[in-house]
Simulated assay, not measured.
Amino acid sequence: MAWAWLVSRAAALGSGASGLAGRVWKIGADDPRRAVHGLKVGLALALVSVFYYTRPLYDGVGGAAMWAVMTVVVVFEYTVGGCVYKGFNRATATVSAGAVALGVHWIASKSGDRFEPVIRSGSLFLLAAAATFSRFIPTVKARFDYGVTIFILTYSLVAVSGYRVDALLAMAQQRISTVAIGISICLAVCVLICPVWAGQELHRLTARNMDKLAGAVEACVEGYFAEEE
């Protein structure tokens, strides 16, 4: 009984694996650009990792080189428009959050050791609450939802770490530069290698849907006349 159960389970797993492989192959065969997109993401990550593995480049950006890798992972999208949208949101949110965090850091550092943690925590509470509430506004939700999330993340990291880090300005510059490197590599790979435009995709999708609709109408008409005969 045990051997029969093991053989049946192995056969079920084999049929399931073959079925999964067939579905995966069909997805790639229906639109080969999906497979190309995976290769593009791998290429972008390989390029940005050079800044971490090469000593001269690593010395130029410091330990913040990993932020460039994270930027590629979260910014790279299937279409060029989606990549530009996320890149713009991330760049704007990172720069604005860094500027606000530096301003609050300067004010807190001038207020003395007693009030500095209070000012930092209070600014973090107010800005995080206001930014989170702004995500419920329809216009902000539709256009800048990702940017607001990055703003909260960046400001929190810079504001909190600034209490223990002396060279806060250098750290902010390194993170902004690495984010810019990641966005630049994403846009270069997405635009230069087999670019996918959202408008073109919409046109193709509309054409495919019209073909399906025409086929369905033709089948209904043929069935109607066949019934009358």
Rank of each mutant, 00 (worst) to 15 (best):
105 H>Q: 13
105 H>W: 14
105 H>I: 10
106 W>T: 15
107 I>G: 00
107 I>K: 02
108 A>V: 06
108 A>F: 03
108 A>M: 12
108 A>R: 03
109 S>H: 09
110 K>P: 00
111 S>N: 03
111 S>T: 04
113 D>T: 11
113 D>M: 09
113 D>W: 07
114 R>S: 11
115 F>P: 02
115 F>Q: 05
115 F>S: 10
116 E>M: 15
117 P>A: 03
117 P>V: 01
117 P>C: 06
118 V>N: 04
119 I>S: 02
119 I>G: 02
119 I>M: 07
119 I>E: 05
120 R>P: 02
120 R>Y: 09
121 S>N: 12
121 S>L: 07
121 S>P: 00
121 S>Q: 07
122 G>N: 07
122 G>E: 13
122 G>W: 06
123 S>I: 06
123 S>D: 04
124 L>S: 06
124 L>W: 12
125 F>Y: 13
125 F>D: 08
125 F>P: 01
127 L>I: 10
127 L>H: 08
129 A>W: 08
129 A>L: 15
130 A>E: 08
130 A>G: 15
130 A>Q: 11
130 A>P: 11
130 A>K: 10
131 A>I: 12
131 A>E: 06
133 F>E: 14
133 F>D: 14
134 S>K: 09
134 S>M: 11
134 S>G: 10
134 S>L: 14
134 S>P: 10
135 R>F: 03
135 R>M: 13
136 F>K: 09
136 F>W: 09
137 I>P: 04
137 I>H: 10
137 I>F: 05
137 I>W: 15
137 I>K: 07
138 P>S: 11
138 P>N: 13
138 P>A: 12
139 T>S: 13
139 T>R: 12
139 T>F: 08
141 K>C: 10
141 K>T: 08
142 A>D: 14
144 F>V: 04
144 F>Y: 09
146 Y>R: 01
147 G>V: 05
147 G>P: 03
147 G>H: 04
148 V>F: 06
148 V>K: 05
148 V>R: 09
149 T>F: 08
149 T>C: 08
150 I>D: 02
150 I>G: 05
151 F>K: 00
152 I>D: 06
152 I>F: 03
152 I>E: 06
152 I>R: 01
153 L>G: 08
153 L>F: 13
153 L>C: 08
154 T>L: 03
155 Y>K: 05
155 Y>H: 15
156 S>T: 14
156 S>A: 14
156 S>K: 02
157 L>W: 02
157 L>R: 02
158 V>L: 15
159 A>R: 00
159 A>V: 02
159 A>K: 00
163 Y>P: 00
164 R>A: 13
165 V>S: 08
166 D>M: 11
166 D>T: 12
167 A>W: 00
167 A>G: 03
167 A>S: 12
167 A>H: 04
167 A>V: 04
169 L>C: 01
169 L>V: 03
170 A>D: 14
170 A>N: 10
170 A>Q: 13
171 M>L: 08
171 M>D: 05
171 M>V: 03
171 M>S: 11
172 A>T: 15
172 A>Q: 11
172 A>H: 09
172 A>M: 15
172 A>I: 11
174 Q>N: 08
175 R>G: 00
